[in-house]
Design a protein around this nucleic acid. Structure first.
Length: 399
DNA sequence: TGAAATGTTGGGGCG
DNA sequence: ACGCCCCAACATTTC
């Protein structure tokens, strides 16, 4: 791998001239901005007489491949999924054994640290502990997942304290692991074992298909009527949310897991997103931007679709009245508080009975657990019942 | 990929 | 023994 500095057209043309390159190969990228940039680059290279070959390495099927009979894009997942399933996913291209281009010692790139991009403060150490980069590590995770967790995936995937997910999302997001390799590895298992996971992979294809047809949905609600929705502006509640200081343990645990590891369990992503948009009435765009900034697996299509789904502004999204109760969600999916205690250590001594609502615990119990509400753990920043009613009223106006 | 409110049923306590 | 009430427990409707 080599580094250089400059706009990518400049750098590439410079290298092409320097090494007399005759062809440039790359994998297509479907982030709308990058996609158009790549298209312009291809034209530029073409004009210069350079051969350009691009490949599919990001999705199971190209985002324009699955369309309804009338040629319009699917807007609902299940029919998309069925149509997708009728197509066959091409196998990955075999590994290239040898590239006879030039010796890598002849290439004069910059060293990574010459770019001045490495952080001066060592904030990445927790991330590096959890995530090893590269295809080898991604494939190792895939093997371990299929061997140990795929069978129980459907049953366990909603429980954040159980290690039942694949952990492949960062590798897929940055492209260090080919999704087609993942597909063809998983599909060797019995259909009933493989299919629930494949279905999740197809959500990813679906989100790219939607994004391709509605690129402005990164910024704007897919349902136009939500353009006039008045989200609140409140730096205090937003800041409490980002720091995991909302007083709702499951929300706080999720936000702190995100901050420390760049990852958050999917069930908890839905809970914290629902809390931001419904309980705090802060815009999903604000939440999406925070996720984009902090998630190691940040993926523009998945992120956009996920947030629009929760906020109820998307095409095939949760109805406006579907508001998660953070206490109930905690009780259902982290019943013994294991996940909460891992990420919110100040609640570690609190008995399970009160772990999802510390503010309901009797004084003696809190004292015993070393918790002083308002000092080392916050009171709930909003009242659940009141915020639920407030959100329903606001959303009702849009309906 | 919800939760709350409301409706229905049936067992048990009790006069 | 019987009717009445209470209220879980479950089902349905509504937001």
């Amino acid at each position: 791998m080599f580094f250089d500095r400059g706009t990518y057209e400049e750098v590439l043309m410079n290298w092409i001239n320097k090494y007399d390159a005759t062809a440039v190969y790359w994998n297509r990228n479907y982030d709308p901005i990058k996609y158009h940039k790549d298209r312009r680059l291809a034209e530029l290279l073409h004009e210069q007489g350079i051969i350009v070959k691009t490949f599919e390495g990001t999705l199971l099927l190209e985002p324009w491949r699955i369309k309804k009979e009338d040629g319009s894009p699917y807007k609902v997942f299940t029919p998309y999924y069925k149509a997708h399933r009728k197509e066959s996913v091409p196998p990955p291209i075999p590994r290239i054994k040898e590239i006879s281009v030039f010796r890598s010692s002849e290439i004069l790139g910059l060293y990574l640290d010459e770019l001045g991009l490495l952080p001066k403060i060592q904030w990445t150490s927790r991330l590096e502990e959890k995530w090893l980069a590269g295809e080898y590590e991604g494939f190792r995770k895939l093997q371990a997942f299929v061997k140990n967790h795929l069978k129980s995936y459907t049953h366990n995937r909603d429980y954040p304290s159980i290690d039942a997910h694949s952990s492949l999302s960062p590798y897929l997001a940055v492209g260090s692991l080919s999704i087609r390799s993942v597909y063809h590895f998983v599909i060797q298992q019995a259909e009933s074992v493989a299919e629930p996971f494949i279905r999740q992979l197809i959500w990813r294809d679906f989100s790219y298909s939607v994004l391709l047809h509605f690129p402005e949905s990164i910024q704007n609600p897919l349902q136009a009527k939500f353009t006039k929705f008045q989200w609140l502006e409140n730096q205090d509640t937003f800041s409490a949310w980002t720091k995991g200081l909302t007083g709702y343990p499951i929300v706080d645990a999720g936000m702190r897991e995100l901050w420390e590891t760049g990852f958050m369990h999917n069930r908890v992503r839905m809970i914290v997103a629902s809390f931001l948009t419904k309980h705090l009435l802060l815009s999903w765009q604000k939440g999406a931007y925070w996720f984009w900034d902090t998630l190691i697996d940040a993926d523009i299509a998945n992120n956009t679709m996920g947030w629009q789904w929760v906020a109820g502004t998307g095409l095939d999204s949760a109805p406006y009245f579907r508001i998660f109760n953070p206490t109930l969600q905690g009780e259902k999916f982290d019943s013994n508080g294991e996940y909460i205690k891992k990420w919110v250590p100040e609640l570690q001594m609190l008995p399970n009975q009160y772990i999802h609502e510390p503010d309901k615990a009797p004084k003696e119990v809190l004292l015993q657990a070393g918790i002083i509400l308002g000092e080392n753990y916050p009171y709930p920043i909003v009242d659940h019942k009141a915020s639920r009613i407030r959100a329903l009223e606001r959303y009702q106006q849009i309906k």
